[in-house]
Design a protein around this nucleic acid. Structure first.
Lengths: 225, 225
DNA sequence: GTCTATAAATCGATAGAC
DNA sequence: GTCTATCGATTTATAGAC
């Protein structure tokens, strides 16, 4: 079995190397990533890359899943540091922002404009919900421990739509909490993307972290934290 | 002068037609727009287009400015309908979302991932602030008419950074109101982009407008409205 | 201001030798 | 699994005739 294991390990390393070079290419080419350029950088023929990824879109999918997992893990790791739910919540938000600042092109890949002509397969759905799930779980903990007070139930059709989602998403969490979690997550995405994509321009330069925290405290307040 | 006027008018019409076809191409090519493809659709040689736009990036810049102006005008027009500041604020937000739903690729162009290799010239800055300015003016009106209560001043370094901005942005508006306006604008961008770029997935399908309004009411609350 | 023609590249994907 | 070679397309941008 040793030869097979070796083959598998070499293959895995090669796969990682291709992805690593491809990630660097995201910086210059954005989403319109070129398999040939990646192969050139690796000193191999473009046709050889097809033994690792069946198509350009498959490579893109791998990068997308990795990015979702990386930002999710950063948030989860940061959240373990806090003692109160609000601290854990804010720590997760800061971790997401810092990951985005460190990996702007990967952020753009998962939260920016859709790649033209690319259709995300089912495999990306679960990793895509990691950060959202973490926020939801944090809020659920706050409700259960009584740190956050129960709130009036939502009215409106979208609340009815969210009720079954709430059940499977995090059992016991009221529909309103799910709505608040999604809203806060969208606010997080908006704040990070706006800063990253240049909407802040020159209005805040020194203390962007402080302004971000101000925004995230607002989102947490709306969620009942 | 009539001949000169005619020439100018024909040129303006041709320019508009090129932009119109280019806008359609945004749908399939995204930001990596091709001058040749546009020329092909117009039945003209690619070299002829260079008489109207010096480069691909110049065409992109024109599209970007048009898009900022279009969404800005939609928001401004919608805001005139409301009677209270909150109504005007929400009307502007809904108008922005509806414009985005009707023109998703132009939205992606201005609020999505930056175009790789494209550097926005100064010309885009003023049109880019139209929606933000409208929200700020609405909030300023609410403060001045006493509809919104004065709030505690901000603390933190970013507040100091925002103070001079507040002066030139909308005189008389406290730094906190400017911060709240920017935060609300980011939340608006986040909610629209998340819906448009597929982050909602299948969680809310029927009443997305209602969920959006829920989010925007939250943002307005945080701003003091 | 429109055309043809061209330069000098790029790309995804495949075929087939080894 | 890597290579060469290839197909059939694409692109930005320019030169020069009319």
């Amino acid at each position: 079995m040793s030869a097979a294991n070796l083959r598998a390990r070499v293959r895995a390393e090669m796969t990682e190397e291709i992805k690593s070079v491809a990630r660097r290419h995201l910086a210059t080419d954005g989403a319109n990533l070129s398999l040939r350029a990646v192969a050139r950088d690796l000193g191999m023929a473009s046709s050889a890359v097809y033994r690792y990824f069946a198509s350009r879109d498959d490579l893109l999918t791998a990068l997308i899943i990795d990015a979702y997992d990386a930002v999710g893990e950063a948030a989860e790791h940061a959240a373990t540091g806090g003692t109160t739910p609000l601290e854990r919540w804010l720590a997760a938000c800061h971790a997401v922002r810092e990951w985005a600042l460190a990996n702007p092109h990967e952020w753009a890949l998962i939260y920016g404009s859709p790649v033209p002509g690319y259709q995300a397969p089912q495999d990306t759905i679960v990793p895509a919900t990691r950060v959202l799930l973490l926020l939801g779980a944090t809020l659920a903990g706050a409700y259960q421990s009584g740190v956050a007070p129960a709130r009036e139930p939502l009215q409106g059709r979208f609340a009815e739509e969210l009720t079954p989602i709430a059940e499977s998403f995090l059992p016991g969490l009221p529909a309103r909490a799910v709505a608040d979690t999604i809203a806060a997550f969208f606010q997080l995405c908006g704040a990070v993307s706006s800063e990253l994509f240049g909407q802040l321009n020159k209005s805040v330069e020194e203390d962007r972290r402080g302004f971000f925290e101000y925004q995230m405290r607002g989102a947490a307040t709306l969620a009942g934290l």
